[in-house]
Amino acid sequence: MACVNEKGQLSPAGKKLLGSLAVESLTTQDISKNSGLPIFKVRSNLREMLNAELIIEENNQYKISEKGKQILEKNNLDK
């Protein structure tokens, strides 16, 4: 995976993205605007994070899941 590997380590873009979703629920466009990441990269990362159950989608808005919070916390401790 590009944004999170099998050991649960987040890529810099993945960490940035998950970190922004830990603060508030955002749309794809919001995430792209806030992070400066191109929209294609945001969509690709969100898809991977949804598959890894790190985030939840509700009404076209994305928010961090409990599992996502744990992974983000672990990555923040590892840095």
Binding site: M1, F40, K41, N45, E48
Partner: peptide, 13 residues
């Protein structure tokens, strides 16, 4: 080289 991508990821650009 930057992960799995779909053409539809580019919608809007």
């Amino acid at each position: 080289s930057q992960g799995t991508l779909r053409l539809s990821d580019y919608k809007g650009s």
